[in-house]
Simulated scan of single mutants.
Amino acid sequence: MAFSLHLQQIFLSSTTFSSQPKSQIFPNLIKKTSIHPLIVKSSLNASASTSAAEKEIRLPPELSRELMPKHVAVIMDGNRRWAKNRGLPVALGYEAGIRSVRKLVELCGNWGINALTLFAFSSENWSRPKVEVDILMGLFEKMLKSELETLASAGIRLSIIGDSSKLPKSLQDLIDKAVKTTEENSRLHLLVAVNYSGQYDVVQACQTIAQKVKDGIIEPEDISSFLVEQELQTNCTDFPCPDLLIRTSGELRLSNFLLWQLAYTELYFSNAQWPDFGEAEFSETLCSFQQRQRRYGGQDS
Results as ranks from 00 to 15, higher is better:
Met1Leu: 07
Phe3Pro: 11
Leu5Val: 15
Leu5Pro: 15
Leu7Ala: 06
Gln8Glu: 09
Phe11Met: 00
Leu12Thr: 13
Thr15Phe: 10
Ser18Glu: 09
Ser19Thr: 12
Leu29Thr: 03
Ile30Ala: 11
Lys31Ser: 08
Lys32Trp: 13
Ser34Ala: 12
Lys41Cys: 13
Ser42Gly: 15
Ser42Lys: 15
Leu44Val: 07
Asn45Asp: 13
Ala48Asn: 10
Ser49Gln: 14
Ser51Gln: 15
Ala53Thr: 10
Glu54Gly: 07
Lys55Phe: 08
Lys55Leu: 10
Lys55Gln: 10
Glu56Gln: 15
Pro60Thr: 04
Ser64Glu: 09
Ser64Phe: 08
Arg65His: 06
Glu66Val: 05
Pro69Ser: 01
Lys70His: 14
Val72Ser: 03
Ala73Asn: 04
Ala73Pro: 03
Met76Tyr: 01
Asp77Tyr: 08
Arg80Trp: 05
Arg81Pro: 04
Asn85His: 10
Gly87Arg: 02
Leu92His: 07
Gly93Cys: 00
Tyr94Val: 08
Gly97Ile: 02
Ile98Leu: 14
Ile98Asp: 08
Ser100His: 04
Lys103Arg: 11
Leu104Ser: 06
Leu104Gln: 10
Cys108His: 00
Asn110Gly: 14
Gly112Ser: 03
Ala115Trp: 02
Leu118Trp: 02
Phe119Tyr: 07
Phe121Ala: 02
Glu124Met: 03
Asn125Met: 09
Trp126Ser: 03
Ser127Pro: 07
Pro129Tyr: 06
Val131Tyr: 13
Asp134Pro: 11
Asp134Gln: 12
Ile135Pro: 02
Gly138Glu: 03
Leu144Val: 06
Lys145Gly: 08
Ser146Ile: 06
Ser146Glu: 14
Glu147Ala: 07
Leu148Lys: 03
Ala152Leu: 14
Ala152Val: 11
Ala154His: 01
Gly155Trp: 04
Arg157Ile: 12
Ile160Val: 11
Gly162Cys: 00
Ser164Asn: 13
Ser164Asp: 11
Lys169Gln: 15
Leu171Gly: 02
Leu174Val: 09
Glu184Phe: 11
Ser186His: 08
Arg187Val: 10
Leu188Asp: 04
Leu188Trp: 00
Ala193Arg: 03
Val194Met: 05
Asp201Pro: 11
Asp201Ala: 04
Val203Gly: 03
Val203His: 05
Thr208Leu: 09
Val213Tyr: 00
Ile218Asp: 04
Ile218Arg: 02
Ile223Thr: 07
Ser225His: 12
Leu227Tyr: 06
Gln230Gly: 11
Leu232Asp: 01
Thr237Cys: 12
Thr237Ile: 09
Cys241Gln: 10
Pro242His: 01
Asp243Phe: 02
Ile246Phe: 02
Ile246Gly: 01
Arg247Gln: 05
Thr248His: 01
Ser249Ala: 04
Glu251Lys: 07
Ser255Lys: 07
Leu258Tyr: 00
Leu258Thr: 01
Gln261His: 02
Gln261Cys: 03
Ala263Gly: 05
Ala263Trp: 01
Thr265Ile: 02
Pro275Cys: 03
Pro275Trp: 04
Phe277Thr: 03
Glu279Lys: 09
Phe282Pro: 06
Phe282Arg: 08
Glu284Ile: 15
Cys287Trp: 14
Phe289Met: 06
Arg294Pro: 07
Arg295Asn: 08
Arg295Thr: 12
Tyr296Cys: 11
